[in-house]
Design a protein around this nucleic acid. Structure first.
Length: 427
RNA sequence: GGAGAGGUGUCCGAGCGGUCGAAGGAGCACGCCUGGAAAGUGUGUAAGGGGUAACUCUUCGAGGGUUCGAAUCCCUCCCUCUCCGCCA
């Protein structure tokens, strides 16, 4: 959620910046809501004040042993008038809140204009795209010997799931362990384990609700529960409605979880293989930092994610998302895209974002420095990395043309020293 | 799932129809004391909103209700603890 006070001061410039992400901020509607709010609030509070004053007088009179009947009579239909005023005010507030909650974060000045991923801006490239003396397969073909079984997954669940077998499964597990260990031991993150089912407040806090309910898996039952679409949700919400001591900052968490996404609206895209699944593994990095530090933290966090790709020696590039491709809550996002030989293109494998105080305001995540007033934190997160896609990248980049995949050096300790995976035999 | 006890400010904890936004303590901030610190001591210190301001409104787990007036009474729900049951 944006700062309403800042919005009130200059709605025009906010509208201008929101244009960069293709969001049409209705200034007229905002002004109207704002002026209605003002008058209704003043009216309601005036009545409330009257009631408080008179009730207090009754209390005093009673304590003094006086007759309170005339005072009570004086109140008359004040209660009813107050009810009406309150009802009107609440109704408007609901409308106002709905309007404000639907407004995405302001893109940072460094975010390029643009409509979709075509307009994202490349920042850098790393690594050498491998030159095969054979036709590189994509991961689906590599796993066709039985290691990756999409048909069985479709039988037991549906499309966009996978059953994996043997060494590939271990490789995925090794990747996750390697990532977590690196972030904990080398980058100073604190590992957490969190629930995979969260309530609506948590999804609201990080911005998936109310706008993106269709992307979530909702759990049937009386209570409103959802499967997490990313660890960002439970991990960031640890600090919802909390005031942490300033000395604790920055807070840096790493968390490995499965992620569940319905990906509604993306049918027809990436239907082949494991690129876009309803369930996938991810190691997530989350930071909660002092407002002055968040831009540094974004660079740092992005570098942490990059380091995993570098250690795995996977070629990648970094891109800044343009306004149109920017997520709802983000002020700026840098994507890491890994090279996939089977597809002959770079594909997103990590997304690192600075949300400034947008999420923190929604969930009232604050800190207090010394005796000062509590202040909103800045939140950031990034994949460090998407494990399923990293697995694909390893399979495709490390294939040898004879149905084998070489295990990257850094993963061998996690694979019991294994050097190659024999994909042909079902891994 | 059953029985009982609870959920109050940054934290602990008192209050159980009116003068309560809430005693007391810890913590924190600023003084004093000290060569400096610790200890001691004094003062201050809930959050959020509206208003140029004076000032004012809201909030004692959440939501309803009773009342002129609710932290306090009633109802529903959520959560925590203890005991029992079930169970990886």
């Amino acid at each position: 959620m944006l700062d309403v006070r800042a919005l009130r001061q200059d709605p025009q410039s906010a509208a201008k910046r929101l244009k960069i992400r293709g969001f049409d901020f209705d200034v007229e509607r905002f002004d109207l809501l704002e002026s209605q709010r003002k008058s209704l609030q003043a009216e309601t509070e005036q009545l409330q004040n009257e009631r408080n004053t008179k009730s207090k007088a009754i209390g005093k009179a009673k304590a003094a042993g006086e007759d309170i009947a005339p005072l009570v009579a004086e109140i008359g239909n004040l209660g009813d008038r107050l009810d009406v005023a309150r009802e009107n005010f609440n109704q408007l507030q609901d409308e106002y809140q709905l309007f404000l909650r639907g407004v995405p974060n302001l893109p940072d000045a460094s975010v390029p204009a643009g409509a979709d991923e075509e307009d994202n801006e490349e920042l850098s490239r790393w690594g050498k795209i491998p030159n095969f003396n054979f036709d590189p397969k994509d991961h689906v073909d590599l796993g066709a010997g039985g290691a990756l079984d999409f048909e069985t997954a479709a039988k037991i669940s549906g499309s966009r799931f996978v059953v994996m077998h043997g060494g590939v499964v271990r490789l995925q597990r090794a990747l996750a362990q390697f990532m977590i260990d690196t972030h904990v031991n080398e980058h100073g993150y604190h590992e957490v384990y969190v629930p995979y089912i969260v309530n609506a407040d948590s999804l609201y806090g990080t911005g998936q609700l109310p706008k993106f309910a269709d992307d979530q898996f909702k759990v049937a039952g009386e209570a409103e529960f959802y499967l997490i679409p990313t660890a960002e949700v439970p991990v960031t919400n640890i600090y919802r409605d909390e005031i942490v001591a300033g000395e604790r900052l920055p807070i840096k968490h790493v968390c490995h979880t499965p992620c569940f996404r319905r990906e509604a609206g993306s049918y027809g895209r990436d239907t082949r293989g494991m690129i876009r699944q309803h369930q996938f593994e991810k190691v997530e990095l989350v930071q909660l930092v002092h407002p002055n530090e968040s831009w540094n933290a974004l660079e740092e966090l992005t570098a942490h994610a990059e380091s995993i790709l570098k250690k795995l020696e996977l070629p990648f590039r970094t891109v800044v998302l343009c306004g149109g491709d920017l997520g709802f809550s983000a002020a700026k996002t840098v994507d890491l895209e890994v090279w996939l030989p089977g597809q002959g293109q770079y594909r997103e494998i990590s997304s690192c974002s600075n949300f400034l105080d947008f999420q923190a305001r929604r969930m009232q995540a604050r800190f207090r420095a010394g005796g000062d007033k509590p202040e909103l934190l800045h939140t950031l997160n990034g994949s460090g990395l998407a494990v399923g896609r990293t697995l694909i990248a390893v399979l495709e980049n490390y294939q040898d043309g004879d149905g084998r995949v070489h295990i990257p050096d850094v993963l061998r300790p996690y694979m019991g020293g294994m050097q190659t995976l024999d994909m042909a035999s079902g891994a």
